[in-house]
Design a protein around this nucleic acid. Structure first.
Lengths: 384, 384
DNA sequence: GAAATCTTTGCACACGCTTGCAAAAAGGCG
DNA sequence: CGCCTTTTTGCAAGCGTGTGCAAAGATTTC
């Protein structure tokens, strides 16, 4: 492409022919070449971003002055600042964060790595994270990791390409080598509910075990004796923790648990599991579903396919407390994901960039409170 | 900060003292200063990204060679490419897209501007867009515009800061001046369901009117005579189009429509509207809700607060066909947002960057097919 | 084997910004 | 008014990349 060559020649020639010709005209002439130049027309369709140079010229100051005007805390006189601002306003100037990031080696970008982000819980988390990151002066890049093994690694690679300041992983677990690479590159990594053992990232987890125990005792108080657990087949650490906790707590009371694992953590899986569970001779009278979506599927299966009533015939508890759990058709008793807490902690940890050497917090465990609705018999009692 | 000065001096001095010392060592020495240098320790905690220069040195080639290796279609010999790749691999090099964007004046960034993105329909759209953008080699930035007037403008400003190649607006409507600024800066803008009249952006809309008409005739065929419409109070163009279309179509059959507008397009609003609507002496026997969430609220209100049966006592139709519409508790007849079509068209239009001067497509109208479920009496008949 | 062609490579400049440094301007003080 | 201190300003180098240009090297052709 000879765009640059042409532009250069053109500009320098003009400058040579009439030195000190209007700077404004100079700028426009360049732009014309750069954008779509209209033959014979003066209509400037300068399709390109305006730079600090343009502003400086118009304001009659140096580029440094412009830069300082837009750098909080830099030394600029009031007069200069005002002239710069006026010029910037008129030209529609916006600091180029890419270039700024290059210099400051801090892009302001935070990557959110997530799969199936249209899932209610994930969507809520992404929204809250994005919102708070914005308030903290960061901007979020969304990277999808649907399916395919190694797609989390690819996502982290993207993260490196864009020199993200940090990455927040809501799904999947990256290869240790890649994680290390990111950390070595100066990135900060937050793992939400991923329960990895790798050192370096900040890990946020929930007290899944506690929730499971609370569920068991609530079922027992409701008079249930045939406990079941509906899990997905994917076996995420946190899902497995819920399962283990539930089975263990039941065992303490000498009760067996029918465990069914199927599909993903979605509605259809729950419904399918209902078909398995309630077709057995020994129908369960209480089911703990590892997330709300599965709980809804299970409830609909129980009601529509087997004519069971909830909570009279079967009690159900979910996890996540997504919006739909409050809908009258479900009124699901469930555990609330402390989204705000998660977000607050993530961002606080990210913001704590300055304090380097002091022993850093490595992980945190948050409490998921039970939200009592109507999918379980009886009243809520204070939790031990 | 004197980081740079120190680094420079240090490196050059070392080079001077022992010329041709291992290049590797040289790189590390520099890094040490740049990252956290440990006094007296060789433990290199080089917290920083590796650059093309580092790779070039290690591979014993010029930086251009590295650049060309990572530029598809550039001229590099197989041997050089391989050496570069090996060095890049070993060092964990990733092209800096920020710098590349600076040169190419094409950042590869596409901004998604959206409010309340945890709403099922929006979340689905964001996911699909992100996914396809990734496949097209772009990366998506998510900008939240919750609440506060002028936040869309602020979002577009961010868009400029990061030199986004394009912005896709799913919510709100920006000020014309800002829109123009973006366009003048060479950005491409897509408005999804925003129905603005401004020239320049690509607009994708649905045939809301047609859907409304189809709904009326379905209601009539089901024997309904007391039509109602549940709308939100926000009055988005597309929502109003559905309302107008519905009222107009009903009028053609000489029927009045009870219109209720309340709150946002959420579950609670639907439930509230049910309380208004079914408390009246003349209870409607058919309600068109401008989106699914409101429909669910309305259905739950009708069932739980008034003991009505759906579709026996009242028929309901929604809009969006979000996941929950297929759930057994609702089985909502609704209109399917052609998400894939929307995404496909958006991206195709964005990709069409080269063809500048030919008359561009300015807007497109997509069809939202009716998805027949059980919230309306009778069978589906072919739509005229 | 020389001439002509094609391929590969390094140099150097550009992109738009920040920032240390030193010079210039402004302000304070006796 | 002169000297000293503080503030403001421009210069220039640098961040990590792409790419035109010309030189060098490899390959083909006669």
């Amino acid at each position: 492409m000879l765009r640059q060559a042409v532009k250069l020649n053109d500009c320098s020639m003009r400058e040579y022919l009439r030195p000190n010709a209007g700077l404004q005209a100079h700028a426009i002439a360049c732009k014309m070449i750069e954008g779509r130049a209209l033959i014979g027309g003066i209509r400037q369709l300068n399709k390109s971003f305006v730079s600090a140079d343009d502003v400086a010229k118009r304001a009659g100051v140096s580029r440094s002055a412009v830069s300082r005007t837009f750098t909080p805390g830099a030394s600029v006189s009031d007069e200069t600042r005002q002239r710069v601002m006026a010029a910037a306003q008129a030209l529609g100037y916006h600091v180029n964060q890419l270039a700024r990031g290059l210099m400051r080696s801090e892009s302001g970008i935070v990557c959110l790595v997530v799969s199936e982000m249209d899932t209610p819980y994930r969507a809520r988390l992404v929204r809250a994270l994005t919102h708070e990151l914005q308030r903290a002066g960061k901007i979020s890049m969304l990277i999808n990791t649907d399916r395919s093994d190694g797609s989390v690694d690819a996502a982290l690679r993207q993260t490196l390409h864009y020199r993200a300041d940090a990455s927040i992983l809501l799904s999947g677990l990256p290869d240790k080598a890649i994680t290390k690479l990111c950390l070595d590159s100066g990135q900060r990594i937050v793992l939400i509910n991923r329960d990895d053992e790798i050192d370096g990232p900040f890990r946020i987890n929930l007290d899944d075990g506690h929730a499971a125990r609370v569920t068991v005792s609530a079922f027992l108080r409701a008079g249930c004796r045939h406990l079941a657990l509906a899990n997905s087949a994917v076996g995420t650490p946190s899902l497995m923790a819920r399962e283990r906790g539930f089975v263990a707590a039941a065992a303490e009371f000498g009760l067996d648990v029918t465990v069914v694992r199927h599909g993903n953590t979605v509605y259809e899986s729950g419904r399918k599991i209902a078909q398995t569970l309630f077709a057995e001779p020994k129908q369960p009278d209480a089911v703990f579903c590892v997330n709300d979506l599965m709980a809804f599927g299970l409830m609909d299966g129980a009601r529509h396919d087997f004519g069971l009533r909830i909570p009279e015939d079967v009690c159900v508890v979910g996890f996540d407390d997504i919006e739909q759990a409050a809908w009258a058709s479900y009124a699901l008793t469930t555990f609330s994901q402390p989204v705000d807490e998660i977000v607050k902690n993530s961002i606080a940890w990210l913001a704590n960039h300055g304090g380097e050497s002091q022993p850093e917090v490595r992980s945190i465990n948050l409490h998921a409170p039970m939200i009592w609705r109507k999918s379980i018999r009886g009243m809520q009692r204070p939790i031990s």
